[in-house]
């Protein structure tokens, strides 16, 4: 059981690092000498920090679960066009009901609608795709890429014929940005994450078995189709939460899930998922700190993450043999 202990120890170290990063984010340049200024800084930074933590946690968990379902560790839910689907759903809501409608003004309601539509479409499309292609990763990825550009074109078609003022209002929610986070939905997201985690609490061990591949999972008594559908729904929920809060972040999931696998060297999802979530928090807060203080807002954090992610992705493809870590 020593491997479990080193795993736990590493998680502890990571948590400490996340705490330190959070403190650095809250306290850097926060005018500690003047309580009123400090309170103002906190008022701005606390919700942003909360959003970053929740978003990276959901992305981390979702990416890891998704990789296990597909049985391939260079995929992320974003490669399958879940982000562009989100943009489309969001744009369609504004287009058909207007940015002044309660659907767009009330952040919680807008979120609920996005979520319901996303979950239904994603589970239907992807659930169907996985079955139809016999869970062949290549096909799923190919179709995902095609779907991704399909959703993207539909969205840009809607944007083109949209009232420019409406478009302005819409744009804020479509670009990944940790400076203008959607903090109104913190409560509902937390609630949703908690419900998802509760619903999937028994699936941690099931995920370990799923990683053995479909045949072995069936042999070990897992109701494969139903389990995958349930997990997929969880993935979609997590991705929607993250995207609704900070906009689409494509590479983050890939980096943190793989860093987690590399750091933990285990197949146990009870250790991998928290690790992936913590890695995400560290990456996002670190990136945000760099954006604010090193680049004074000239480079957005999503650019940093995409750059880092791209390089890491190449490294995975070129230097790591399939299956090994």
């Amino acid at each position: 059981m020593t491997r479990t202990h080193t795993g736990l120890f590493r998680l502890l170290l990571l948590s400490a690092a996340v705490l330190a990063a959070s403190a650095a984010y809250l306290l850097t340049d926060s005018k500690l000498y003047d309580l009123r200024l400090f309170a103002f800084a906190l008022k701005l930074r606390l919700p942003a920090l909360a959003v970053m933590l929740i978003a990276s946690c959901s992305i981390g968990a979702a990416s890891l679960i998704f990789q296990t379902i597909i049985n391939n560790r260079i995929v992320t839910p974003c490669l399958l066009g879940m982000n562009s689907m989100y943009s489309l759903v969001h744009t369609a809501a504004v287009f058909f009901f207007g940015s002044g409608s309660i659907l767009a003004v009330n952040a919680n309601l807008a979120f609920a609608v996005d979520l319901a539509v996303m979950a239904l479409t994603a589970v239907f499309i992807y659930g169907f795709l996985f079955k139809k292609t016999g869970h062949s990763v290549l096909y799923v990825l190919l179709i995902g890429t095609v779907l991704s550009s399909l959703f993207g074109s539909m969205q840009s078609a809607l944007v083109r014929i949209m009232d420019p003022n409406e478009y302005d209002a819409l744009l804020v929610s479509l670009v990944a940005d940790f400076n203008h986070v959607n903090s109104e939905i913190i409560l509902i997201s937390l609630l949703l994450l908690a419900v998802t985690a509760f619903a999937l609490r028994r699936d941690l061990a099931v995920l370990d078995v799923l990683a053995l591949g479909r045949d072995q999972a069936v042999s070990l008594g897992i109701d494969y189709d139903r389990t995958v559908r349930r997990l997929l729904l969880g993935v979609v929920l997590c991705i929607s939460i993250a995207t609704a809060m900070v906009g689409p972040v494509s590479f983050l999931g890939l980096i943190i899930a793989n860093l987690a696998r590399q750091a933990m060297k285990t197949g146990r999802h009870a250790l991998l998922i928290p690790c992936s979530a913590l890695m995400g928090m560290l990456a996002v807060i670190g990136g945000q700190l760099m954006t604010e203080h090193l680049f004074s807002f000239s480079v957005p954090v999503s650019t940093l993450i995409t750059m880092g992610g791209g390089i890491y992705f190449l490294y995975l493809l070129l230097f790591k043999k399939e299956g090994g870590y």
Binding site: N71, A211, G213, D215, Q216, S219, G323
Partner: peptide, 10 residues
């Protein structure tokens, strides 16, 4: 036990 035993984890 089938031949598709490509495990992607440690």
């Amino acid at each position: 036990l089938t031949q598709h035993n490509n495990v992607q984890m440690k």
